[in-house]
Simulated assay, not measured.
Amino acid sequence: MAYYLNKMKRTNKTAYESAIHLLNYRPQSEYELRTKLARKGYDPDEIGKVMDKLKHYGYLNDSELADDLFDSFRNRKCYGDTYIHQKLKSRGLHTNKHLTAEEEIDIAVSLLEEKVRIKPELLINYRKAAAFLLRRGLSQSAVMTALREVRTFEYED
């Protein structure tokens, strides 16, 4: 703990400089920046002024970041709506965008088909297959539909 406190006091950067450094590393939400700056020991009033300045210059825009991250997760086609929104929430972000039921079913089917190629025993153990898809944040209806479709595809061969 003493090492951490000593490390905090060695910083010669202003809160604004630290925030810019963090933003150069990767896009951050206001919540993330506030938390990191507070951990570095900056005054809450100073942090508030820095947030206002960053928003004024367009370096900090939570709604745009949330939409960009949602689109990035959507394009990966590996996660369901629940997972995506949990990830956004953990970064202090929110978006009104959602995956459609058809998108979730397509994602579930493609994930399951890929997983079955690696582990064919998932065709027999539906509980494990369902758990795999549910951990990816897919809806129960998408999971059940995917399980039926993949089972049908396997028996048609």
Rank of each mutant, 00 (worst) to 15 (best):
L93K: 07
G58Y: 00
I105L: 11
S18D: 00
K13A: 12
R135L: 09
L122K: 09
R148H: 14
H98L: 06
I118Q: 05
V150N: 15
Y79W: 14
L133V: 12
N6G: 14
D52T: 12
K40I: 03
A38P: 05
P120V: 15
L22Q: 10
N24G: 08
L122M: 12
L147D: 13
D157S: 10
D81V: 10
T82D: 13
F132D: 06
L147A: 15
Y155F: 14
K36S: 03
A131H: 10
Y155N: 13
Q86K: 06
I47Q: 07
Y42T: 09
L147N: 15
E64I: 06
L54M: 01
R91A: 10
E154F: 14
N24K: 08
L123E: 12
A130R: 14
F153Q: 07
K87E: 13
I47S: 03
T145C: 09
A146H: 13
L37Y: 04
L33E: 04
K7E: 15
A131M: 13
H94F: 05
N6Y: 13
A38D: 10
R127F: 07
A108M: 03
E154H: 14
K77N: 08
H21Q: 13
Q140L: 05
S72I: 08
K87I: 07
S90L: 06
A19D: 01
S63M: 01
H85V: 07
L60W: 05
P27A: 04
H98F: 08
A101M: 11
E30Q: 02
M144E: 12
K13P: 00
M144L: 11
A129I: 03
E113V: 07
A129M: 05
L65K: 04
Y57E: 00
E17W: 09
A130S: 15
F70P: 03
K119D: 15
M144Q: 11
E102T: 06
R127K: 14
A130C: 02
R91K: 10
K13N: 06
F70M: 02
K119C: 11
S63W: 01
T100E: 07
N12C: 08
V109C: 12
E104K: 04
N125M: 06
L5Q: 15
F70Q: 02
I105V: 12
K128E: 13
K89R: 11
A38N: 08
A142Q: 06
L93W: 06
L112T: 02
K7H: 12
I118P: 00
K128S: 07
M144P: 08
E154V: 15
L23F: 03
S139G: 11
S63K: 05
K55C: 05
Q28L: 10
H85F: 05
R76Q: 10
E103T: 08
Y59I: 00
Y59A: 12
E103P: 02
K115R: 14
